[in-house]
Design a protein around this nucleic acid. Sequence first.
DNA 1: TGAATGACAGATATTGAAATCTGTCAGCGC
DNA 2: GCGCTGACAGATTTCAATATCTGTCATTCA
Lengths: 198, 198
Amino acid sequence: MNEVVVLTPERILEATEEVLRRYGLAKATVVDVARVLDVSHGSVYRHFPSKASLRQAVAKRWLDRANAPLQEIAESSGPAPARLEKWLRTMVDIKYKKVTEDPEMFATYLTLAQEACQAVRAHKERLVDQVAQIISDGVKQGAFEVADAKVAARAVFDATTRYHHPAHSDDWKDPTRPARIDALLELLLRGLEAPRKR
Amino acid sequence: MNEVVVLTPERILEATEEVLRRYGLAKATVVDVARVLDVSHGSVYRHFPSKASLRQAVAKRWLDRANAPLQEIAESSGPAPARLEKWLRTMVDIKYKKVTEDPEMFATYLTLAQEACQAVRAHKERLVDQVAQIISDGVKQGAFEVADAKVAARAVFDATTRYHHPAHSDDWKDPTRPARIDALLELLLRGLEAPRKR
DNA sequence: TGAATGACAGATATTGAAATCTGTCAGCGC
DNA sequence: GCGCTGACAGATTTCAATATCTGTCATTCA
């Protein structure tokens, strides 16, 4: 019954996150991670070829976790305009919660993500594909009229940069933020809409 | 005929820019500025109360210079949609030229501007007012239909953040950039447009 | 008299020696 | 054999002494 606790990449990632939380990004060392796991730091290098790859893996996990709820909305059914709005608001909320609940860890993960720019590109690509899916549904439903769903999706994603890109995390304090988001979403949805009769 | 060259704020700003160009932001000192002007550094402090205020003045000058051509477009006449598109493209181009022609000086001015965040706020406010002016004209012309020109202007400004905010200067290499700007502008103009008959 | 100077105190930046960390690997023990 | 250890070289970081800079002001000079 008393299983031998084996060293797995999963356990190492967990220990790394603890070390990051405890010491912060700058002072977190592989030696610290090994100490938490009660092994020598050489053992960690048996599972990750370098400190950089360890950090990348942490970043990737973080991005994947952020992706899940959005994926779900994109795959659900219903009127596309409402779904798109919900998707965008959810994305904005996810970032909002992350940055307000634990600003230090957010900053940490953020830097890790910037280092793993390849993973970030893939993450963004996935997000744009989700938006493209919703817009494409909207075209089929007759609610949207766009030449190319993927192009439109990227435009929508770009247009909301200010409210989901981490570079603008200091805007969270702005009291007019909710009203501005409302105005922006309305503008975008109107731009996607099929022309209406007066 | 041989005028005595007096020390003016203007001359000090010019000398400061030269020093910034020569040594870079981190190593530029007030002593260096004084040396360029061939005076003691104490004299510089007669015109600017601190190094910080000197740097602020440089940042302000930079922002004012960037503002001029946009102001002109905002004040011109003609169909609002074309004018808005021109204004937005000009703003994007200004940043593009600045960053490609002299990336080091751009980075320098950028940091100075971040320090002078009050001046940046004022600058942005001016820009949004210019967009609001154009949109307001568009409403009068019957081309646009929006509840509040200022609110819509802020939404347009926010939506184009990715293409004018310095935090996204590394996107300038992206080969799909022009196409994405086109798509975004089309989306925004469609969103502002008064509903058309089919 | 009013602009400029230059010596000065406290703050900030630089530097190089010492400490710590990363990544490797021969060898140990299960 | 397989996973782990711990000593090691080279790279990086830390820290304290040293140098430079910022901002002030009594003094000079025109």
